[in-house]
Design a protein around this nucleic acid. Structure first.
Length: 279
DNA sequence: CCTGGTGCCTGGGTGC
DNA sequence: TGCACCCAGGCACCAG
């Protein structure tokens, strides 16, 4: 379940490996449900830089001979991961046994492999910045939580504007970008807000804003959380799992008050919270 | 527009 | 041991 800290960790590992490299060849999975499109357009292009927006990785490609600027958009979904290894001398397509969905053969004898067992990830080449038509979620993405664009007053106003459970709003990506199930539970625990709460006033919104920033900052420092599937480009695990206070702690006492943590379902997502100190 | 519900996908776990 | 079933969840899509 790669969320902002995990995707940021992947970006930091990919950037020195891929920046300046030219994509010599691309192989990809023709599965009918694969969320892969126009990857052939990346052939011959050089990767100029990689930025992250929410849970998306955006790779800017150098202009084509026709002067078009394209962008490679990557999303890890639930189970996506990247690895870099020497290009196989005899290309045989994809190694489907380990769920490789895309192979980007680079100009330096190495291959970037995108594996994704559950096929929830995506990889698309689009005209740079053309999100409204191609990737609506990216077009309506909320502010980056670890930037000055994440404004407490605007966040409070957005929380007050609608009546869905606060956890659903955190998962929505339009109020704030990059928060998924793990860090939603963590931030709500830290802010002492019940995940099903439909009314979050200014004071609690301020606490939640601060909790989101703190939790994501701490998780980025630990290179994210490895709970099940996520791993980094180098195959290592994120180290934040040992610091989780809420997510996956359904059988433990609350680390703040000792009350047994409770597990429920909110917004169709498994949700763990403390019934005593999250009101 | 807002909200909640379903489906997509597959490995791993559970219960019989 | 085998097998049916269910669950994990980011996002697209749909209905009310």
């Amino acid at each position: 379940m790669p969320e902002l800290p995990e995707v940021e960790s992947v970006r930091r590992q990919l950037t020195p490996q891929l920046t300046g490299r030219r994509i010599a060849d691309v192989w990809w999975d023709a599965h009918p449900h694969a969320r892969l499109s126009d990857l052939d357009l990346a052939v011959g292009r050089r990767i100029e830089r990689i930025v992250r927006r929410g849970k998306f990785l955006l790779c800017t490609l150098d202009p084509t001979d026709d002067g078009d600027t394209l962008e490679l958009v990557l999303h890890l979904g639930m189970t996506g991961s990247f690895s870099i290894r020497p290009t196989e001398p005899t290309p045989t397509g994809l190694a489907t046994t380990d769920h490789v969905r895309v192979r980007f053969d680079l100009d330096d004898g190495r291959t970037l492999r995108f594996a994704d067992p559950r096929r929830f990830g995506r990889a698309s080449v689009i005209p740079a910045g053309d999100y409204v038509d191609r990737i609506p979620t990216l077009a309506t993405l909320g502010p980056e939580p670890l930037s000055s664009a994440f404004d407490p007053a605007a966040f409070a106003a957005a929380l007050a504007a609608t009546s869905a459970p606060v956890k659903a709003k955190l998962l929505d990506q339009r109020l704030v970008a990059g928060v998924g199930n793990i860090y939603a539970d963590e931030a709500l625990w830290r802010a002492r807000i019940h995940p099903a709460s439909r009314r979050v006033g200014r004071v609690r919104a301020g606490r939640l804003h601060q909790a989101i920033v703190e939790v994501l900052t701490a998780a980025v420092e630990r290179e994210g959380t490895t709970f099940r599937d996520y791993q980094m480009v180098n195959g290592e695990s994120g180290r934040y799992a040992a610091f989780l206070d809420a997510y996956g702690q359904g059988d433990r006492p609350c680390r703040r008050c000792g009350e047994p943590m409770r597990r429920t379902v909110i917004a169709q997502r498994g949700t763990t919270y403390c019934p005593r100190c999250q009101r």
